[in-house]
């Protein structure tokens, strides 16, 4: 199973640029960990309806009452680059 890790694809999905050394090391590290999962992935477990929450809590919805939060200035206060009140990034291609 572990040999199958397509580390380049995983890094692409995670949007992290890896250098060759990192690719090799991470592939090796991940393979080791994933090997450790073998026992778990082979277990025969009932296919119950999954509640992701440990306490099986149910959702409380919020009333639709709008309120003010961050000021425009606060919203942009950590922006690496901004112009005309907007966040600026290098061109994003569709």
């Amino acid at each position: 199973m572990a040999d199958k890790i397509d580390i380049k694809n995983v890094a692409k999905l995670a949007s992290i640029k890896l250098n060759q050394e990192e690719e090799d090391r991470l592939k090796n590290d991940l393979s080791m960990i994933i090997e450790h999962f073998d026992a778990l992935s082979k277990m025969d477990l009932p296919d119950d309806k999954i509640s992701i929450h440990p306490l099986g809590m149910s959702l409380n919805l919020a009333e639709d009452i709008a309120s003010k939060s961050l000021t425009h200035k606060e919203a942009l206060s950590n922006a690496p680059e901004s112009k005309d009140g907007q966040f600026v990034v290098p061109p994003s291609l569709d």
Binding site: D64, I65, A66, S69, L70, A75
Partner: peptide, 25 residues
Amino acid sequence: NSKMFCRCHVLDTESPNESLCPTCL
């Protein structure tokens, strides 16, 4: 009146980044 997962106003405005909170940002 408010957004889907936070209580920021749904604004019909041309001025950018006026209706934001930690959640929707």
